[in-house]
Design a protein around this nucleic acid. Structure first.
Lengths: 345, 345
DNA sequence: ATTTTTACCGAGAACGCTGCCGGGAACGCT
DNA sequence: AGCGTTCCCGGCAGCGTTCTCGGTAAAAAT
């Protein structure tokens, strides 16, 4: 009564063979209606659940997807929710591991999942990660693998990402349209791809307006509110201080905002501010912070879809690279001429 | 080369039996040093990893913990991180499922994990959940199970929770100390245990100050910013409006804050505000919102510890109920007499 | 009436691993 | 020399499932 019912139990009480039970449960054709019904009825009654390990052992499929993310902040949590959504739909279970932005932890996690625990991986790499051997090992085992959000150019797998450059472009162009001219950027660590892409957009926008980028206005700091706060303080202490700041995350925008307020400057008049991610917090502070929204949920869904596709049709999909467009949400922090197109909430 | 190496491969190339290989790998005593070394060397070379399914099939242990949470907001994500931490340490892998506060989803998830996929569950129930049959089923299978954060009184399992009553008490008492006397509470849905506990604390504080609770000042609304906003608007429209509001989550506090600002009232002078959870956002808005901090990370760690204990020593632990203390962080939103003990961060 | 088809079912192996048991060789003891 | 120990090792079964193969009886075709 305590042990879960097996196919053998059913076979025994029905006095038929296990093969027949197995077939009956799987709706195969080689079973008469009566036995099939009998089997189903009994299995229902015994609350029979197939043993997944026996299954996995046999057919080398786990119907589990391993997801490795650097953390579970707002954006990533939303993406994971998206992954979860379509995975569940497709009969997969999802296993989430956080690498805590740590390279070592990432290795441990992949190794854990690597052998036989999951059918494949959906990964967003940690910011520390510079070596990718552990991922290449996965590919050698030709285990399906999809990267999302933070990619690695070296590793050829299907991927979903945001058009970060376009995000940077939208943000910077908006600031330029609003009349700001000395625009600083708070970028992340130099190794972080998404940061560089957003900066490319920033540079592209400047170029469009024929403004020569000022190296003093390009700050690389850690992806963190406190660092952003300090960096902004320094920026504002310059003799020719910037009249706008674009930060590549909302966390950093908050940090910048604190420094700006401390200095007694007013947004958007004295200085403009645009962040990235469109986290809820941007509309909670005052003034509200303009921010580049990314379709995180959609991005997660897309990642899972790609994974499942590359799982089923096993033709090579490594070239597939979906790119989703961000969308700037304009709030008070950068809205000098209120006439304009502002969408707020 | 592509297929992972098995114990058989090692046995074959070394011309010994699989049993010997198995023993050699497990450091058992019945193996000579030479063969043991040979086996280890070869397994290293072939990058042998034991097949977990074969293991699980045999010894009915998965070394995987299923975690079901209603969502992955700030607090829960932190708790999950705590669980992850100690689980990994103890050689367990963690599988996180979000129920999205939906009862149906919770059932699906538990069923998924129930049979043979995990060794047990660590659960925080969804706010919709009112029936607990699916959890009782788990216990019937005597699968280890731990509840955390949001418990269910009916189900006897080891648990970790916050002393929510004390949190409510600290918050309300603080408001009273600051001279507020008509204190409203924005509580969550009546079915939600943690909400009721926090309200108990609220009532206890009032009693201590010999204030009769006014039913008009006790509002039950959804656990949500928008509802809190609307509820606060109504509160402020009363002829005898409250002079302070205690909300049982920071989300709701933000909603309340928006309504307060809209009405043109000033915090802390016209009205006091205290939230719950001490999410980062509370220190980002201005004025900063006082909030009751919970040791979320610790709580998660504790949950995992309890789980592992109840896994190993299989004596009955269902009576164990760890209770962690919250701690009020005081910020401007409720600090009338600035002289006081404020810790701000 | 005989052959062929169809419908249904069972036996056995396999997946990768461990646990139990038994057995041979070498050693020490009487 | 005979006996019991100890040390190593191999064989076999079993975990719960599915898959392949083969077989029997009834139904259909000849």
């Amino acid at each position: 009564m305590n042990k879960p019912a097996t196919i053998k139990d059913i076979a025994r009480t029905l006095k038929i063979s296990t093969s027949t039970v197995s077939r009956a449960l799987r709706e195969a054709s080689d079973v008469s209606k009566e036995t099939r019904n009998a089997v189903k009825a009994l299995s229902e009654e015994l609350n029979y659940q197939p043993n997944k390990f026996a299954l996995s052992l046999q057919q080398k499929q786990t119907h589990t997807i391993g997801v490795i993310v650097p953390n579970l902040d707002y954006v990533l949590a939303t993406m994971v929710k998206g992954i979860d959504e379509v995975a569940l739909e497709a009969g997969y279970t999802v296993m989430v591991c956080q690498s805590n932005e740590s390279f070592g932890r990432e290795i441990v996690n992949t190794r854990r999942l690597l052998h036989s625990l999951v059918d494949g991986l959906i990964i967003s790499v940690s910011s520390e990660t510079k070596v990718f051997d552990h991922f290449k090992k996965i590919l050698d085992k030709n285990m399906p693998m999809v990267m999302f959000d933070r990619l690695i150019a070296d590793v050829k797998v299907p991927s979903v990402r945001l058009d970060n450059k376009d995000g940077g472009l939208q943000a910077t162009e908006h600031l330029l349209e609003q009349g700001y001219r000395r625009i600083a950027i708070l970028a992340g660590p130099k190794t972080l791809g998404i940061s560089n892409e957003r900066m490319e957009g920033y540079l592209a926008a400047l170029k469009k307006y024929k403004i020569k980028p000022d190296p003093d206005l390009i700050i690389h700091c850690d992806f963190d509110q406190d660092y952003a706060y300090l960096a902004t303080k320094e920026l504002l202490a310059m003799k020719k201080r910037p009249d706008a700041i674009f930060t590549i995350s909302d966390r950093m925008a908050i940090g910048a905002m604190l420094a700006i307020k401390e200095k007694g400057l007013k947004m958007p008049d004295d200085i403009g501010l645009v962040g990235f991610n469109n986290e809820p917090v941007t509309s909670l502070v005052s003034p509200g912070i303009s921010s580049v929204d990314q379709p995180a949920f959609e991005l997660g869904k897309m990642a899972a879809k790609l994974f499942i596709e590359s799982m089923h049709h096993n033709d090579d999909m490594s070239h597939v690279e979906e790119v989703l467009k961000p969308k700037l949400f304009i709030r008070e922090s950068s809205m000098r001429n209120a006439a304009k197109n502002g969408r707020t909430k």
